[in-house]
Design a protein around this nucleic acid. Structure first.
Length: 102
DNA sequence: GGAATGACACTAA
DNA sequence: GTTAGTGCCATTC
């Protein structure tokens, strides 16, 4: 409970700190956490007990791919487009320019 | 306590 | 440039 909640809370805190119109990658988030648990970050979001409070749809893969989403990748892409992000073929075009650096 | 999985990332072919 | 295989961390069964 404590340990896992600590790690998850850390991820949610970082993701929640991503401003609108910006995105981030699992790898970058893991780096901020001080770990290489790329999948663990995504895994925490997968369980997503905080989906409503955490804009996890702003988190994509290091290649700019959409990756996945609890509500479905399609929904995630739609949300990103609403944020002003250009999504091309299930991948963010200018994602390199949209990466939010902590 | 151990094994398997996962919304990833990296390297090699 | 694309595809395949392997490795890493944390969570879950």
């Amino acid at each position: 409970m404590n340990s896992k909640n600590n790690f998850n809370n850390r991820c949610y805190k970082i993701v929640s700190s991503i401003p609108k119109g910006k995105i981030s990658t699992y790898g970058d988030i893991a780096k901020v956490l001080g770990t290489k648990a790329y999948q663990a970050v995504g895994n925490a979001m997968a369980k997503n007990p905080n989906l409503i409070s955490v804009p996890c749809h702003r988190v994509i893969e290091s290649d700019g791919s959409i990756g996945g989403y609890a509500l479905g990748t399609s929904k995630k892409i739609t949300l990103l487009k609403k944020e002003g992000i250009i999504v091309k073929k299930d991948k963010v075009s200018n994602f390199k320019n949209l990466i939010h650096q902590f």
